[in-house]
């Protein structure tokens, strides 16, 4: 089982490599990838340095071009694919059918992974990308229970990667436009959900408010920790209740499921968080490296160490974690 870690910059990439990642994924400094945040990501030179660093230590590097180009941006996506080929990354992670078509024709030797942003949740959908573009691996959206993930694996020729840890998209990735409904920018079009430039915190007489694109996402009592105002983690009114109508601020953590994930035939575990610090990446990589090694050494006796979960909770939204959709009652 490959441990795939995020890198938003060169120090993060090094931290991932040094702390046990098997592979690292990154994106360019533009809207061709789904973490298009100011100050984040790689130019070609930095990417080449990072790849050399990882390769020198026997690690693989994947590049994400996983947003959806509109016609006026097409050239940028095309050129990102060419850059990935020039860098000879170990795999290109794509979502858009047009981009996959271009990459598979122009660079037939370049291995393709299907991004979570392609929103493919079943083996028939995966078969389309396998038949048409020869994808080798797919990252599954965070909507399936563990038994459903297993069923996909049993019926697809494609390697399956799943998210193990990090911020939790509650909606099916690649088909959520809550962000653009409020800000005009979505992960698909701009590579960012709830972009920072639309975020606002206001101190009012009744406490702190968080807003996205002017829309009130939450109010916090005195002393309450304010969260980042993604729509799906806000408190709203439905009927007579005001509550986290979609999801509480929490992160995904599947550490406890490691033996089952491996038994299900999962080829890789992905850690979310290209927007996070090198310290985050290093710490999370270290915990997961230890956990994976320990689950391989003794699958039947595996239990996550208390200190692993404590460390992960510290960097989780709301300092709590969930098994999310893998655990059916969550749904």
């Amino acid at each position: 089982m490959e441990l795939v870690c995020p890198a938003g910059n060169l120090p993060s990439l090094k931290a991932a490599v040094d702390n046990g990642a098997d592979a690292i994924y990154f994106g360019l400094r533009d809207d061709t990838n789904a973490r298009h945040f100011p100050g984040l990501n790689f130019n070609e030179k930095r990417a080449a340095e990072g790849i050399a660093y990882a390769r020198g230590r026997g690690k693989r590097v994947f590049m994400a071009i996983n947003t959806y180009p509109r016609p006026d941006g097409w050239q940028r996506w095309q050129s990102a694919v060419d850059i990935a080929a020039d860098l000879s990354v170990d795999a290109l992670i794509c979502a858009d059918i047009g981009v996959l078509e271009y990459a598979s024709h122009r660079w037939p030797e370049l291995p393709l992974h299907l991004s979570v942003q392609a929103s493919s949740t079943n083996y028939e959908a995966l078969q389309f990308y396998y038949d048409n573009f020869g994808i080798r691996r797919a990252v599954l959206p965070r909507v399936l229970s563990l038994s459903q993930v297993k069923h996909v694996i049993e019926n697809t020729p494609v390697e399956i990667e799943v998210f193990g840890f990090g911020s939790l998209c509650v909606m099916v990735e690649g088909r959520c436009i809550l962000s653009s409904y409020v800000t005009g920018q979505s992960p698909n079009t701009h590579g960012a959900c709830s972009p920072a430039e639309f975020v606002e915190y206001r101190e009012t007489s009744t406490g702190l408010e968080s807003r996205l694109g002017g829309l009130l996402t939450d109010r916090y009592a005195k002393g309450e920790q304010a969260g980042y105002p993604t729509i799906c983690k806000g408190r709203f009114a439905v009927g007579d209740d005001t509550f986290y109508a979609i999801e509480e601020p929490t992160s995904l953590n599947t550490l406890a499921l490691l033996p089952q994930l491996r038994q299900a035939g999962i080829k890789a575990i992905k850690i979310e968080g290209r927007q996070r610090s090198p310290a985050y990446v290093g710490m999370v990589a270290k915990v997961w490296r230890e956990a994976i090694d320990s689950s391989l050494a003794d699958p039947d006796g595996f239990t996550p160490k208390v200190e692993w979960n404590q460390a992960l909770n510290q960097v989780s939204e709301g300092a709590t974690t969930t098994l999310g959709p893998y655990y059916r009652p969550w749904q």
Binding site: V172, R175, A245, I246, E247, W330
Partner: peptide, 21 residues
């Protein structure tokens, strides 16, 4: 009303404190 997103979770059920199943 525009379809904006889909999830594994049923939010109507959740609004009644019920699980999807």
């Amino acid at each position: 009303r525009m379809p904006l997103t889909l999830s594994a979770r049923c939010f109507t059920a959740r609004s009644f404190n019920l699980p999807k199943d």
